[in-house]
Amino acid sequence: MSDAISALSGAHATGYVTVTEAGLRGMITLRGDLGATKLKAAVKKLIGADVPLVRQNTVNADRGVAWMSPDELLLMVPHAEAESCVAALAKALTGTHHLVANVSDARAVFRVEGAAVREVLAKISPADLSPAGFAPGQVCRTRLAQVAGAFWLTDDETAEVVCFRSVAAYVFGLLEHSSRTGSEVEYS
């Protein structure tokens, strides 16, 4: 098989926060009844964490699970394991109404780091990024200027931004542009 490469090969920009393409990440879309015992058990087994509550994001070392909608989860695993995880999930959920798909190569992931990370994201999204409205451990599915995207904070100064791979260059441009030195809003 040919080697998988990420959309922008680790592109990096330094402004008043840094923007880095985070490379390959295994991502699995799982849809179904999030309250079903079988589904809960399968997620627990694969990720080592419970199905998150509404808009929560659980990270367990190199794995994670994010709440995407009332019937959808985004599972994150090491890229090389995505295919086998999909197979394991499909097997575990046999007989239950569900959908599981490996979307790893349909996505791009960016890491945005710096004290002003909330401000940079607030420039490109209508979401509430105040500390009261959005905290580490939550996931936000929203709009990044003209495209769909999602992000979460891993700590108070680090965010991970996910978008479709086809718009990776656009989103990198957005993040790079809105974090240019000299464009600080200093909103707090």
């Binding site: 509404v54 808009r55 209508p126 509430d128 936000c140 599915r141």
Partner: peptide
């Protein structure tokens, strides 16, 4: 009411 977010018009 599905996710509890106060969604901006441009998200809808």
């Amino acid at each position: 009411p599905c996710c509890g977010v106060d969604a901006d018009e441009t998200e809808l």
